[in-house]
């Protein structure tokens, strides 16, 4: 046993050294960020400085990351940390007071607002962009359009074979995001439970054969490699390795492909707002960041990231 321990010492020391090195780096950057005025260029008006956190939706993360990067480039004394475990996590963090901005791909629930008020937090909602929630399949799949009712039946495991919706005779591998995800909740309410249709049924839940995946990236790569897979993702995640399905409200309607145009003109049936939540109306640094996001320049980044900008 002693030998075992001895042999373990060298790697352990190495790991410690590396860890210490990293800690050194990160503390350096945070002190730079939090010390106002140390590197302020003389020619500019009072420069912004400080740091804040954005936690929440996996869908919004690529967009927030682009905004944060551009904002930090323009204001070198600002540091922004973006992480995207899911909208539910972001809202829970906002309620617990562990984040400055919560990014969400679904609206906050009334029960969550009550919890927030109980914790002395006042959620303030700002729409920063829109999204066409896209349903994706493998490019080799002959199915190219589905009604909301068919999608609901697929996600409740009532339809289990592609031939029932006009495809090959193969089992459907149904994939969804886990409960951390705002997309999980939005899709459940608007597609599985068919909100806004005459067949609306709030007792419907995801079927128990549905695969719940921890990240959107994993779902997209699974669909890209599995000819029988189906998954949903924000428009920004749709790439050439997968095929987006045209969605129709009812069998009589025309199927609409998800895109910036169809989301903006309201013809795509499952589009949604992407939101930021703060505790009370934003002030100071966070206000200037959000102002940047909503500016024409910020909204250009929305289009560049594959999302839908706010209607002008």
């Amino acid at each position: 046993m002693l030998k075992y321990i001895k042999r373990g010492i060298l790697p352990l020391v190495l790991v410690l050294v590396v860890a210490v090195a990293f800690v050194g780096c990160s503390s350096e950057t945070t002190t730079n960020a939090t010390q106002p005025g140390t590197t302020t260029p003389a020619n500019t008006t009072p420069a912004l400085s400080g740091s804040f956190k954005i936690i929440g939706s996996n869908t919004v993360t690529p967009l927030s990351a682009v905004w944060a990067e551009a904002f930090m480039k323009a204001n070198s004394d600002v540091s922004i940390a973006v992480s995207g475990p899911g909208s539910g996590v972001g809202i829970a963090s906002l309620i617990d007071g562990t984040t400055d901005i919560c990014q969400a791909s679904r609206a906050i629930k009334s029960s969550e607002i009550d919890q927030a008020h109980a914790n002395g937090v006042d959620p303030y909602e700002i729409q920063v962009a829109s999204d066409a929630l896209s349903v994706i399949v493998n490019p080799s799949n002959p199915v190219s359009e589905l009604t909301i009712a068919q999608l609901s039946a697929i996600y409740t495991n009532q339809i289990t074979n592609w031939k029932e919706v006009g495809g090959n005779d193969a089992p459907i591998v149904v994939m969804a995001r886990d409960t951390n995800s705002g997309t999980h909740v939005f899709f459940k309410e608007h597609v599985v439970q068919m909100d806004g249709l005459s067949t609306k049924d709030t007792s419907l839940e995801y079927g128990d054969k549905v695969l719940f995946l921890p990240s959107t990236e994993e779902g997209v790569s699974q669909v890209a490699s599995n000819p029988n897979g189906i998954f949903y993702a924000g428009l920004g995640y749709v790439n050439e390795t997968v095929k987006a399905i045209g969605v129709k409200k009812t069998a009589d309607d025309i199927a609409v492909q998800p895109s910036v145009e169809t989301a903006l003109n309201g013809t795509y049936p499952v589009s949604r707002p992407l939101l930021y939540y703060t505790d009370g109306a934003p002030t100071g640094l966070i206000k200037s960041y959000i102002d940047y996001c909503l500016s024409a320049e910020g909204q250009e980044e929305v289009v560049a990231s594959g999302f839908v900008p706010l209607a002008q």
Partner: peptide, 28 residues
């Protein structure tokens, strides 16, 4: 990560640890 009681080892499934990890984030 499926929620069904697995009938065979080749079914998709969720263990207790995975259920904790995928649920604790959004739990207030």
């Amino acid at each position: 990560g499926a929620l069904a009681v697995p009938a065979s080892p080749t079914d998709p499934m969720t263990t207790m640890t995975a259920a904790i990890a995928s649920g604790i984030g959004n739990a207030v």
